[in-house]
């Protein structure tokens, strides 16, 4: 049984054997309008883990990801990156990259310049950044489109550009907020396969928000199931399948049974998410 049910209200941080990259210590988020986005949460993400956040809408999975990205600050509690404050993020070995729901590319710049943007921010020498842009585009199979403009690309290609822009910084921590949500299933499966290969090759630590059970099981080493009202960790679910994973895994019976288990767990989480009281 790979199902680790934890106490719904306040999940204890799962013991992580390897060095933690992100530690969330009783962090909670109450928005300005009084909405309780996240009840105090404890969660640790270890080096090389692929953690997916899944749950019904309003469970705070995007909020949690934004807390990890330091896009918003917790109302209470604290978050540590590499056992330290956020100031140290961005230094060698502590590079963070974020991929949004939308490709968010600059329409006036060619693909190569879009990918180079984070390197321009870092003031990297031109020759070096060109070389890294080439490598990143190669990883996502888009080298031939380097001189195209975003509007000339399909939705899936734009998303791959966005991933290349994240990979070009050679990140150690990759945060993705439902990046393939708007794509058709076929394209999504392909990109999932690319992502699983990339993160395995690069020993990435990844936190991934998704709505899709199949995507979560295919990609993750651990899945955090969340519930709403208030947003909280409902259960953790580990997928101890070896990497690299490919379409054979997707078609296997083990994959199907894991999806069934996760689906049952999500049903429970939705049930626990009903509003109580007035």
């Amino acid at each position: 049984m790979n199902l680790v049910l934890s106490e719904p209200q306040r999940a204890a941080a799962a013991p992580v054997a390897v060095e933690p990259v992100v530690e969330i210590l009783s962090a909670e988020k109450i928005f300005a309008n009084g909405f309780r986005g996240l009840a105090p949460i404890d969660l640790a993400v270890g080096r090389g883990e692929f953690v997916s956040l899944i749950g019904p809408s309003g469970c705070g999975k995007s909020t949690l990801l934004k807390l990890i990205a330091n896009l918003i600050e917790p109302s209470d509690g604290k978050i540590m990156w590499w056992r330290g404050p956020f100031d140290a993020v961005g230094k060698a070995g502590r590079q963070l990259a974020f991929v949004f729901q939308e490709p968010t590319l600059m329409p006036w710049a060619r693909v190569a310049r879009n990918v180079r943007l984070p390197l321009d921010f870092l003031r990297l020498p031109k020759a070096k950044s060109e070389q890294r842009v080439r490598a990143a585009l190669e990883q996502v199979d888009l080298l031939p489109a380097a001189r195209a403009y975003p509007r000339q690309l399909s939705g899936g290609m734009k998303m791959r550009v966005s991933i290349a822009r994240a990979m070009v910084t050679e990140p150690d921590l990759l945060l993705m907020d439902e990046p393939f949500g708007a794509l058709d299933e076929f394209t999504r499966n392909r990109l999932d396969e690319d992502l699983v290969r990339l993160s395995w090759q690069r020993h990435l630590t990844t936190v991934f928000v998704t709505h899709s059970i199949y995507e979560a099981v295919f990609l993750s080493s651990r899945i955090v199931v969340m519930a709403a009202n208030p947003g909280r960790v409902f259960a953790e679910f580990s997928v101890d399948e070896p990497y690299p994973r490919d379409e054979n895994f997707r078609e296997s019976e083990r994959f199907a049974s894991r999806c069934r288990d996760l689906s049952a767990l999500l049903t429970e989480a939705s049930f626990a998410s009903r509003k109580v009281g007035p």
Binding site: A69, G90, F98, E102, T104, L117, F121
Partner: peptide
Amino acid sequence: GLLSYFRMNKVGRAETLIR
């Protein structure tokens, strides 16, 4: 989205204006 991307990368006001 692009604006939050720039903010996340701690890009300054002048550079955000130009880029």
